[in-house]
Lab assay of single mutants.
Amino acid sequence: HNLTITQGKLFFHYNPKLCLSEIHKMEEVSGTKGRQERNDIALKTNGDQASCENELLKFSYIRTSFDKILLRWEPYWPPDFRDLLGFMLFYKEAPYQNVTEFDGQDACGSNSWTVVDIDPPLRSNDPKSQNHPGWLMRGLKPWTQYAIFVKTLVTFSDERRTYGAKSDIIYVQTDATNPSVPLDPISVSNSSSQIILKWKPPSDPNGNITHYLVFWERQAEDSELFELDYCLKGLKLPSRTWSPPFESEDSQKHNQSEYEDSAGECCSCPKTDSQILKELEESSFRKTFEDYLHNVVFVPRKTSSGTGAEDPRPSRKRRSLGDVGNVTVAVPTVAAFPNTSSTSVPTSPEEHRPFEKVVNKESLVISGLRHFTGYRIELQACNQDTPEERCSVAAYVSARTMPEAKADDIVGPVTHEIFENNVVHLMWQEPKEPNGLIVLYEVSYRRYGDEELHLCVSRKHFALERGCRLRGLSPGNYSVRIRATSLAGNGSWTEPTYFYVTDYLDVPSNIA
């Protein structure tokens, strides 16, 4: 807008934040220059609390790290170098490059900038070799853009010569660093050979998330399962459950009422301010606690030095998902009996873990797994792929695949051998790939016309006998059925096997 004052003059007093240069501009645009008398524009009460600059400061050096910015700028000295009290560095987070010096300023003089007072450097006698002032900004957020400017702080001049310097606002972004852990990993099994893994992005990506790394490792069953005799009275049979499938998407929606109208769909109840505040506090606490764990609990591995020492970490090797089922080394339970199943799973520490690289999504279907087997899954978020990966501390989750139908069934015939004193040795093959492992066998036998009897055969007993022995049988026709019990439950009964026990007292003698 054009402003013209045809008559009258300007009068400025007691404006401590208004620089004289701005008042002189007002004289020019209003056409009143030359009308004012000496005392109409006070030299001592206008701009006496402001830094009124008329020179431009330029930054000469900028260096960044993930949490620091090192700045240096060209030296500046007023005509009387004693008038320079120091520099004021202003900075704040700036997602967009549209910041002005006066953003967030209120009537009390406060604003949204963080201000650092910096002492002037030592003055050199040689004007050509003056030290460049600077400042190291610490405690910054990774991968965050900051708006920065600097200006001088000078003393009051009796001659009211307006001098000083100020830089333009520059924008500097800190470097990326390792992201925080992925949030809320959930693993479920939808079949006997697959596990579905879902997660949420890290709360602090500290860069642009480029991919996720998912490692999985087959877990050995508890050692007590191999040692305890679950045929003993009072000892509860062990059981394991597989990871249940995901709930429906509708039930997972946030901010939804727990109660549904019987007449149909209901609208979600909005969260109160107290609920939102509580969630923010919980989120802040979780982030602080995660940072504490990362800094205190997890110790970084030592990389190899120039002395030739090897990095103890196993090298990563990509495998196809079809090879995942046989990740671990199978060892027989008892070496003397080769027909026992290889369900003991000690994992070799030198073995390469299978892994998958996930790009542009937060889910993965891990296939080719062994049925009813526990897996430990390790999830890392990465925001750099080359020249070397920059990934987060791992988040861990466990899951067990679903049982395989008929995996616990005894394959092959049940054979028998009759000894003296009416002892019958029953023999059968253990299931080759049971659900988890076989903890015991149930032997059901009966003599024709009598009630059915049951015998429990422990895992250890089966390994020693290759089956079991029935003792003290009365003469007669017998039928026997056997079924295995694994961590997933009972298998199917075998087809009945028949044998006849004679009275050993009636056996004919070869003595003449």
Rank of each mutant, 00 (worst) to 15 (best):
S492F: 02
V424L: 08
F289V: 04
S341D: 12
T485S: 05
F285P: 02
S320R: 14
A330V: 13
I438P: 03
E224N: 09
H371K: 05
R481C: 10
F285S: 03
S203F: 07
N295L: 02
R319N: 12
S243I: 10
Y500R: 12
P354S: 06
P496F: 15
Y498H: 06
R483Y: 03
H254K: 15
E224M: 06
Q275M: 10
L470Y: 01
F289P: 01
T386L: 03
Q219V: 15
P238G: 05
G322V: 06
S363E: 15
V414H: 06
S283K: 01
F337K: 05
S458G: 15
S223Q: 14
N435L: 00
R466T: 07
A263D: 14
C391L: 05
G234P: 11
K406M: 07
N477R: 10
P314F: 15
G476S: 02
E224Q: 09
E388F: 04
S344L: 09
F298M: 09
W242L: 06
R459T: 07
K432I: 15
L440N: 08
H371Y: 12
P205K: 02
A394F: 04
H425W: 06
V296I: 07
S392Y: 00
D291M: 01
S251M: 05
T210A: 03
R218S: 12
P475G: 06
E417H: 03
L235C: 10
S268K: 15
L225N: 04
D409W: 12
V414K: 01
T272V: 04
V424G: 08
T502I: 04
P238V: 07
F285W: 02
T415V: 14
R469F: 11
S474A: 10
R466V: 08
Y504T: 06
E290T: 03
W493F: 08
A309P: 05
G374Q: 08
E282V: 12
G234W: 06
V365K: 02
R469N: 04
H211P: 01
L379W: 03
N295R: 08
R316M: 12
P403V: 02
Y230R: 09
L470S: 01
E265H: 12
L237M: 09
M427G: 13
V334M: 13
T333S: 11
I377E: 00
Y292P: 01
E388A: 10
H352R: 09
D385K: 08
K460I: 11
L369D: 01
E227M: 12
E417Q: 11
S341P: 07
T303N: 14
F355H: 08
P238K: 12
G308A: 10
H454N: 14
S342H: 11
N421P: 13
V297L: 09
K253S: 04
M427K: 13
F419W: 15
I377V: 10
N360F: 06
T328L: 14
E247M: 09
D323M: 15
H211Y: 14
H461V: 11
R319W: 13
E290A: 02
A263Q: 12
G472F: 10
N422M: 06
L225V: 04
N206G: 05
E227L: 10
W242P: 14
V439E: 04
Q219S: 06
H425G: 06
G264N: 07
N477S: 08
R301E: 10
A395N: 10
Y259H: 06
L277H: 06
R481H: 05
Y478I: 02
S284H: 12
S344V: 09
S257M: 04
V345R: 08
L505N: 08
F285G: 02
G449L: 13
E281S: 06
R466P: 06
R353Q: 11
G306N: 07
W216C: 11
P205T: 08
E465Q: 15
S320N: 05
K406N: 15
F215Q: 12
P300R: 09
W216I: 09
P238H: 03
C382I: 06
W216S: 03
P413I: 15
V329D: 03
L280P: 05
S243K: 15
L437G: 10
V327S: 09
N360T: 09
P338Y: 09
G325C: 03
R353S: 12
A336I: 10
A220Q: 14
T401S: 04
P431W: 00
Y478K: 01
F298D: 01
P475H: 14
D323K: 05
Q384K: 02
V424T: 02
N255E: 05
Y478G: 01
R318P: 13
V329M: 11
F372E: 03
R370K: 13
V296S: 14
Y445W: 10
S257R: 06
G374A: 14
G322E: 07
E265F: 13
F355M: 11
F215G: 11
V480K: 01
G449N: 09
S444M: 08
S444C: 03
D506Q: 09
K361Q: 12
Q384V: 15
D385C: 10
E265K: 11
E217Q: 13
P270W: 03
H371V: 07
A399I: 02
F246I: 06
V345Y: 09
A263E: 06
K271H: 10
Y292F: 08
T497R: 13
K432S: 08
K236S: 07
I276Q: 08
S305V: 10
Y212R: 00
H425F: 12
V297W: 02
L505A: 10
S304T: 10
G264Q: 07
G472E: 03
S348N: 14
S262I: 15
I511F: 06
R353V: 15
Y498S: 07
S458P: 07
R483F: 01
E282T: 08
W216Y: 13
V324D: 06
M402L: 05
C266I: 09
C468T: 02
T347N: 03
E249W: 08
F337V: 05
L470D: 01
H425E: 13
Q380T: 14
G207H: 02
H211W: 14
D323R: 12
A263I: 14
E282N: 04
A220C: 15
F226D: 04
Q275S: 04
V296M: 10
Q429K: 15
V480F: 04
V359D: 01
L455K: 12
V507R: 15
H352L: 12
E433C: 15
V507T: 14
R318T: 12
S486A: 14
E433P: 02
R319A: 11
D229I: 11
K271V: 03
A399S: 11
E281I: 15
A484T: 15
P403I: 02
F289R: 01
T307H: 07
V334Y: 09
N208Y: 10
P508W: 08
T497V: 14
R286E: 01
T494S: 04
I209M: 13
L426V: 15
T303P: 09
R319Y: 05
K236P: 03
R218V: 10
G207T: 00
D323I: 14
Q380C: 14
A463T: 12
F246E: 10
E420F: 05
R318K: 10
D311F: 08
L453C: 03
S398W: 13
S367T: 06
P431Q: 03
F462P: 03
Y396G: 06
V423M: 06
S251K: 14
N206R: 14
V331N: 13
A463K: 07
H254E: 08
P387N: 13
P431S: 07
N339E: 11
L232E: 06
F355A: 08
L473K: 01
Y498I: 14
E442G: 04
V393W: 14
S203G: 13
T401A: 09
C456M: 01
P238F: 06
C468G: 05
T210G: 09
V393Q: 01
F226G: 08
H425I: 11
P338I: 13
G449D: 07
E260W: 03
N435E: 01
A407M: 06
R390S: 05
P244S: 13
S243Y: 09
A381C: 01
P403K: 02
A381G: 04
L277C: 01
S398I: 05
L237T: 03
S341I: 13
R483H: 11
C468N: 03
N421G: 12
L232C: 13
N477V: 03
R447L: 13
S398N: 14
L225T: 10
E388K: 04
F215I: 07
Y500Q: 06
N360E: 14
I366G: 01
S203Y: 15
F372V: 01
I482M: 10
V331Q: 15
G374R: 10
Y292I: 03
L464S: 11
V411I: 13
A394Y: 06
A263V: 11
E362R: 14
A394E: 10
S363F: 04
F226K: 10
G489H: 06
R240S: 08
N421I: 01
V501S: 06
V359A: 13
T272E: 11
H461L: 11
G234H: 11
P332E: 10
P338V: 08
N422G: 11
L473H: 02
N339P: 10
M402K: 12
P300Q: 12
E290F: 02
P403L: 02
S474R: 06
F226R: 13
N383A: 08
V327A: 10
E389G: 07
S274V: 08
T497E: 08
S341C: 08
S509H: 15
V397S: 04
Q429Y: 15
N421E: 15
E290G: 09
V457W: 08
K287L: 02
R353G: 09
